[in-house]
Design a binder for these strands. Structure first.
Lengths: 202, 202
DNA sequence: TCCTAAAACAGACAAATGTCTGGTATACTA
DNA sequence: TAGTATACCAGACATTTGTCTGTTTTAGGA
């Protein structure tokens, strides 16, 4: 076979491998070989190893389908359960009523996280719109000024936490909504909002 | 070895495999074996095959690392490249300057998507704050009213697209920012914003 | 022109991995 | 109580896949 211009085939191979890796299906050396019509495995392998040398690919030597995308400081991906509704009872019981799972990059255990869909416009000025999905880290307390999910009168609500002497206040981020001053025994902090997601279109 | 309660180990194996698949690293039969301390490969394999029979996993028989997540309804998770900065040249060249990858649920090819970090407060009223991460579907055009990423004077900007006769307008969602009226030859639409993400805390 | 490096090929070996056959022990149930 | 299904182990074989050595061809520069 005649040779192709320098670097051109390598670029196409990188694109091919990258697509496969992003789709979660690492290719084998021979799959690359076939995809590009090479008559020898080594032709594909030489390109792949060159890409590793260039730092554009990473690999686990000896392992089948061992090529990876070089991770520049990325945390692992976990699946976070999205709660359909938050019941009055324990948060653990809510696991029964799932809306599905969403991928999330975190070093934390997935059991310490949950997702929740936002209702109402009370957090508009904080850039949290109705229908947004918030990802929450479970914790029974939080610092003043942080955005939390609290259970008030059997309903989960997203608000800004303000701590006073013996009680807490739940502030909206929208002047048209009232500040909640719940009885200390009537409120429970479920966790702290650590991420906001909004889908604009499929 | 004593046996464990019915179905319990299987559930944990399913979780393990799913995590690995979502992280883009399909496990081998023996990796599952080691992860659960089985003394025989077949122990792991029996569970995996059972999960396939139950329809909870899919597989490509004979292939190394051939287990997959069955794709029914729910879209698969892909890793979307986050661009560090958007250069004047082609979008493809920007692949060189990556900020990492983020998991994203989509049926679309990962090559059609990219992530970008938002600068400035021009989209405040649309709930898009500085530092937010937008996920963008590559397309050279979009409908009027949609939020797009456009390249104006060698700089990527997130704005609301408005189409006029022979030109386009880029509207901010913040009255304190000006409407951009770029020369048709000086502007290029890179894609449409399909999701907004904001990290509040680690 | 000669030299060097890149690109590709040929053929093989070795390791990783998928698959299979047969066996033991325990729980549940008819 | 016998039967059946599940969970697990032991050992082997076959395929897939990674890796290696050596050769040929061509582009581009000294």
């Amino acid at each position: 076979m005649g040779r192709t211009p320098a670097g051109e085939t390598r670029e196409r191979i990188f694109g091919f491998v990258r697509e496969r890796l992003l789709a979660g299906q690492p290719p084998t050396t021979r799959e690359v070989q076939r995809a590009f019509g090479f008559k020898a495995v080594q032709s594909a392998r030489a390109h792949l190893e060159a890409l590793v040398d260039e730092g554009r690919l990473a690999k686990e030597p000896g392992k089948a389908r061992g090529y990876r995308l070089p991770r520049r400081g990325g945390a692992p991906t976990v699946l976070v359960p999205v709660l359909g509704r938050v019941p009055a009872g324990s948060l653990e019981a809510a696991v029964e009523d799932l809306d599905g799972y969403i991928p999330f990059q975190s070093r934390r255990s997935p059991g310490k996280l949950f997702g929740l869909r936002v209702k109402g416009e009370s957090m508009l000025d904080a850039g949290i719109l109705p229908g947004d999905l918030v990802i929450v880290r479970k914790q029974a307390d939080a610092d003043s000024g942080q955005i939390v999910v609290a259970l008030v009168e059997d309903e989960a609500t997203v608000k800004i936490l303000r701590k006073r002497r013996n009680r807490i206040e739940l502030h909206p981020a929208n002047p048209r909504y009232p500040i909640l001053l719940p009885d200390p025994h009537e409120v429970r902090i479920l966790g702290k909002v650590i991420e906001v997601r909004r889908t604009l279109d499929v």
